[in-house]
């Protein structure tokens, strides 16, 4: 029922948009009608889908790097409080500096554009994973920790039977944030890089279209990005529900 309302709202919005464009005779280079956007998407599907695939690869490779490094560093933090004290502020600095501002530097230092894009994506996606996992690994219930001590649990048993399961909800919350952020990172970095050529993503298509005032094509690329973002969000929500939904939802 709630979902029906969301659909109704979306359809109503699209219909008024379409109607407004026809009724006020807005030129398509100012605001294209939804029908024209879909048509443009269909006509440019070959080139747009190649670019979409490129952006998707950067996003998920960046996310994979963020997960790997974030989890490993969080585990190291969990083992050594000193390491956390030494490195966590650096991670915060990396996080609070806008990616648009760092991207030009990274592009100077790294020869391969693809590598530079990956680094930018990683920078954006890494922090939520790190900080959430680090908190999660310390979040085990105090009494449960005492219980493990009482029964003489080994460090490994403590890690895999207590700390990792306790950290899982935190990690997944971080993952849901990072998934969306990595897409933003991948697009932003490419915007800054302003790369052209075959091996480029949706950001380059948007830039090209904007130089040529092909507004419908900009909207078509934007539509693909939005859909990708939504799919990533839905995917990680589903994953979260599958992994911890049963005990988590019930607890609330």
């Amino acid at each position: 029922m709630e979902r029906a309302w969301a659909w109704a709202g979306g359809i109503l919005l699209l219909m008024s948009w379409e109607g407004l464009v026809w009724w006020a005779e807005i030129p398509h280079y100012t605001l294209p009608a939804p029908s024209l956007i879909l048509l443009t998407l269909w006509e440019n599907l070959a080139s747009l889908s190649l670019s979409w695939w490129f952006t998707l690869q950067i996003t998920f490779m960046g996310l994979a790097l963020a997960i790997l490094s974030g989890v490993m560093l969080a585990a190291a933090f969990a083992l050594s409080k000193r390491l956390e004290l030494a490195l966590f502020p650096l991670a915060v600095v990396l996080q609070v500096t806008p990616i648009v501002a760092i991207a030009p530097l990274i592009l100077i230092y790294v020869d391969s554009t693809t590598a530079a894009l990956l680094i930018c994506t990683w920078v954006v996606g890494f922090f939520p994973i790190l900080s959430n996992t680090a908190i999660g690994l310390r979040a085990a219930d105090r009494n449960l920790r005492d219980l493990f001590t009482l029964y003489g649990a080994s460090a490994w048993q403590r890690l895999f039977l207590l700390r990792v399961p306790s950290a899982l909800p935190y990690f997944l919350a971080g993952l849901r944030i990072s998934g969306g952020l990595c897409l933003i990172g991948a697009v932003t970095a490419e915007m800054v890089a302003g790369v052209a050529g075959r091996e480029t993503g949706l950001a380059s298509r948007i830039l090209e279209a904007s130089y040529r005032s092909e507004t419908p094509k900009m909207f078509a690329a934007l539509l693909l990005l939005t859909l990708t973002g939504v799919v990533i969000f839905v995917m990680f929500n589903y994953l979260t529900r599958r992994l911890i939904g049963r005990w988590h939802a019930l607890e609330q």
């Binding site: 219930d141 493990f148 009482l150 029964y151 039977l161 207590l162 399961p165 005990w247 607890e251």
Partner: peptide, 24 residues
């Protein structure tokens, strides 16, 4: 040890919770 709060592992079944001391 029995705490005021049942202190069960929320991700584990009743069986797995009760198994914990032996498992460790």
């Amino acid at each position: 040890f029995v705490f005021q709060d049942p202190t069960l592992m929320p991700w584990a079944s009743v069986f797995d919770n009760v198994w914990l001391p032996l498992r460790l």
